[in-house]
């Protein structure tokens, strides 16, 4: 680890002030940042600990929830309203990492966790455009079984590893940000970027921007939502593919639906094409399969991750069938 200074922010304004200097990074639970610093992939000169800030979950006037950026993953998962009104979020939380990590990790840090691409981690031995823009990407012709099938570029095929973000993408969450220029909000689906030719740019945050909260709008039909994660071992593994979904059915027809995918792209992937195909369609396996195929039609898999296309399609169909109470 490169030497750094450690300070704690007393409040958001203090954090934003401190964060304005170059080389400063905010510290949440440290479960990703400390690891990356040890690998010398991240070399901040100063850490401003923001894990003690905004640690509350409050109900909004509209009947949604405002989740502080400092809320620990476990606290979010076990929150009563989250469990009853947004169960897909609880399910996503508890399928991520391990209990110990969930006790440490914060919502802000989870949003900003970086990819687990092996070549990204191999700081001295491999080429990676995300670490060194323009250097090349060793994953494209290397091990990429876990890599992206949607929205990837010739520069980078990494995936965003978060489970939480997939549920947030499906739930129309909004990210609250405070920066030098004041406060602003960004919908979660616009918060993370596709790699394009600058995979080092991962979100719309400006240097020094602090995440203060994530807001969930009310979504009554999300009370019966779910999250399914497919992985190589039964627990403590990142997703190969995951699906967050909620569906509202009236008279056998899909009134409204939310679907987001994890493990398939550089960002949590909101399946807007599938959703559009489903609204107004009869709720049944045929429509679900058609919608899934529509979404995955845009997939550009490589040799070793082509299975993810089928896996994603099948998992979407299965999850929707389960929610709709029809057998696949």
């Amino acid at each position: 680890m490169t030497p750094f200074k450690y300070t704690r922010a007393s409040d958001a304004a203090d954090a934003v002030r401190k964060g304005a200097a170059t080389g400063v990074k905010f510290l949440g639970g440290g479960t990703n940042l400390v690891d990356l610093m040890r690998e010398t992939i991240e070399r901040p000169g100063e850490l401003v600990d923001v894990s003690g800030l905004s640690t509350e979950i409050v109900e909004t006037d509209e009947g949604g929830l405002r989740i502080g950026a400092g809320v620990r993953n476990t606290a979010l998962a076990e929150h009563r309203r989250v469990r009853t009104a947004y169960p897909m979020l609880t399910r996503a939380m508890v399928s991520g990492a391990s209990a110990q990590i969930r006790n440490m990790a914060t919502v802000g840090g989870n949003l900003l966790q970086r990819t687990r691409c092996s070549y990204f981690y191999d700081e001295d031995g491999s080429r990676c455009n995300k670490r060194v823009p323009g250097e090349g990407c060793d994953a494209i012709e290397g091990f990429h079984r876990g890599h992206a099938i949607l929205g990837a570029s010739d520069a980078c095929i990494a995936v965003h590893p978060s489970d939480m973000c997939v549920a947030l993408a499906a739930l129309d969450a909004v990210v609250h940000i405070e920066g030098a220029k004041g406060a602003r909000t960004v919908p979660l689906v616009d918060f993370h970027c596709l790699p394009g030719d600058r995979p080092d740019i991962e979100t719309v945050l400006e240097p020094g921007d602090l995440i203060t909260a994530v807001e969930l709008p009310p979504m009554p039909f999300a009370a019966a939502s779910t999250y399914r994660k497919v992985r190589d071992r039964a627990s403590y593994a990142f997703a190969l593919v995951s699906v967050a979904a909620a569906i509202e059915i009236e008279d056998g027809q899909v009134r409204d639906v939310r679907i987001a995918l994890g493990g398939v792209a550089h960002k949590p992937w909101r399946a807007t094409r599938a959703e559009a195909a489903l609204r107004g369609a009869p709720a049944g396996e045929t429509a679900f399969a058609g919608a899934a195929a529509t979404e995955l039609a845009g997939a550009r898999p490589l040799a070793d991750n082509a299975f993810k296309v089928r896996l994603a399609e099948r998992t979407i169909v299965s999850v929707l069938c389960e929610l709709a109470g029809v057998t696949a």
Partner: peptide, 24 residues
């Protein structure tokens, strides 16, 4: 953070001491 061997209790909660900075 990948094995759990370093697990300790902080205010009664289990955490990984390898990813926790002592300063925190």
């Amino acid at each position: 953070g990948a094995c759990g061997a370093c697990t300790v209790l902080v205010d009664g909660e289990r955490v990984l001491s390898c990813l926790t900075l002592a300063a925190q």
